[in-house]
Amino acid sequence: MAKILTVDDSGSMRAMVSHTLSEMGHDVEEAENGQLGLEAALSTQFDLIISDVNMPVMDGITFVTNIRKEANYRFTPILMLTTESGQDKKGAGKQAGATGWIVKPFNPQKLVSLVNKVLK
């Protein structure tokens, strides 16, 4: 299955995403902010990245902007999983290079469905 990075400052949210995706057979690695997510992505190639928007150290939009500068992540699907639902944030995410947007709290089945869709 796929190697997935989940980036979120909430430990419980990372655990929920990891559990949901691990049960599908995916290999999930966690990072608690955008800076640590960037470091993880530069040391390991991931097939999919799921990131929060609002985090300390480096927010999700900045993280996506930076990761899209890397040649091996230009076409990697990046899903934003966040409480933010405003069009301005969604627009900023899309401009940064986000592939999709899921608003928290999320339905695990919806996450699974979207992950399956973007990994095809």
Rank of each mutant, 00 (worst) to 15 (best):
residue 8 D to L: 10
residue 9 D to Q: 05
residue 9 D to W: 00
residue 11 G to A: 15
residue 12 S to F: 14
residue 13 M to W: 13
residue 18 S to E: 08
residue 18 S to R: 13
residue 20 T to M: 05
residue 22 S to L: 10
residue 23 E to T: 06
residue 26 H to R: 13
residue 30 E to I: 10
residue 36 L to F: 02
residue 37 G to S: 03
residue 38 L to Y: 03
residue 38 L to H: 04
residue 38 L to I: 04
residue 38 L to P: 11
residue 39 E to W: 04
residue 39 E to R: 11
residue 41 A to Y: 00
residue 42 L to D: 01
residue 43 S to H: 11
residue 43 S to W: 09
residue 44 T to I: 12
residue 44 T to W: 06
residue 44 T to S: 02
residue 46 F to A: 03
residue 47 D to L: 07
residue 47 D to N: 09
residue 48 L to A: 06
residue 51 S to L: 03
residue 53 V to Q: 13
residue 54 N to I: 04
residue 54 N to Y: 10
residue 55 M to D: 03
residue 57 V to Q: 00
residue 58 M to C: 00
residue 60 G to C: 01
residue 61 I to N: 01
residue 61 I to C: 12
residue 65 T to N: 01
residue 66 N to V: 15
residue 71 A to D: 02
residue 73 Y to N: 01
residue 76 T to L: 05
residue 79 L to E: 12
residue 80 M to R: 04
residue 81 L to T: 09
residue 83 T to N: 13
residue 84 E to F: 09
residue 89 K to G: 00
residue 89 K to V: 02
residue 91 G to I: 15
residue 92 A to M: 14
residue 99 T to M: 03
residue 100 G to V: 15
residue 100 G to R: 04
residue 101 W to L: 00
residue 107 N to S: 07
residue 110 K to D: 10
residue 112 V to L: 14
residue 114 L to F: 10
residue 116 N to R: 05
residue 117 K to N: 14
residue 119 L to W: 04
